[in-house]
Design a protein around this nucleic acid. Structure first.
Lengths: 168, 168
DNA sequence: TCGTTTCCGAACATAATGTTCAAGTTCTTC
DNA sequence: GAAGAACTTGAACATTATGTTCGGAAACGA
């Protein structure tokens, strides 16, 4: 927490860019999309774009950050309640699927056949991080298995993202 | 099976392009690589490249096809032997990991941090197809579960690719 | 109101894309 | 080994995106 107040212009600019990105993703997918398209749609100067983001990937990541924070919070709650019943294992995944369903128009366009490579990678990294944290906490509390924590996180994270994309 | 003999020039051209691609991937990754780089390295005319492939992704896919055929054959063998012991379940995965290890220099460059999004997607699709075929055969032979075949294939395929990339 | 931050927009150099075509060459096959 | 088919070449071309620069204008916070 460093900047208490963010300049209103900065907020507007970034919000316009994110909105434009989402709209354009639905229209033509992510890969076949240029920075030029985004700034045209957002009606933002070229120089301004590069003052805020390095690339369209960077802009996309900033958009996904909101989702990540939300899932992380959900996970924190479930783990805090201490329950180890089925409902609290990977509790964030419920919200994840719900979120994908709610925004399924843009979600499908994002990870759809042609365009989704970069998006998928971003999402997968996010999920693996979440799973790792969770598995770590579950294991230290009692279990001891031969399987490396990281391998488990990678496998489960990869499986989740595969499932999500197929299902979405 | 249609063309028994492929023109020697075609073979040479495609081989040169594939070799150039592999070499360049190791040097600068896949994404930050242009068709221009490839044809310069391969010393092949620009028009010739586009006569064979639509894009660098297309060229890459043609390279991966060899691996796919090999894994498929391995799977066919294991299933034909009819055994349902541990060693024959997902038998192709052993070869998959071996292959990744053998060519780990190029493999790492392919799926490494920055560059691997497109490659990952291609590999994952290939794996899911393999897993689906196998699960289908295993299920019809006796089991009946509530879980949809496709969901299983997607989950396992995604998990495998996650594991592979982390491990490789 | 005043000083600071941000935005603009236009210009610029560089580079890649994908297509076309006539001319040359290498293959295959008979 | 000759004829004809198939392939490769190089150059040109129009189009488009990239990322950076700058001074001046505008919006902001306090």
């Amino acid at each position: 927490m460093k900047a208490r107040t963010v300049d209103r212009r900065v907020q507007r600019t970034q919000q316009l860019l994110r909105s434009a990105l989402m709209a354009l993703i639905q229209e033509k997918g992510f890969e076949s999309l240029s920075v030029q398209d985004i700034i045209d749609r957002a009606n933002i100067g070229r120089a301004t774009f590069y003052a805020h983001f390095d690339s369209k990937e960077d802009l996309l990541a900033s958009g996904i950050e909101g989702l990540r924070a939300s899932l992380k919070e959900r996970q924190r709650q479930a783990l805090a309640e201490g329950g180890r019943d089925d409902a609290s294992v990977l509790a964030f995944s419920h919200e994840l699927f719900a979120h994908a369903h709610e925004h399924r128009a843009v979600f499908r366009a994002m990870v759809g056949k042609r365009s989704g490579a970069v998006v998928q990678q971003l999402l997968q990294k996010m999920l693996v991080d979440l799973v790792r944290d969770e598995v770590k906490q579950m294991m230290t509390s009692s279990d001891a298995t031969a399987m490396p924590l990281e391998a488990m996180a990678q496998y489960i994270g990869g499986g989740l993202i595969g499932l999500l994309i197929w299902w979405g």
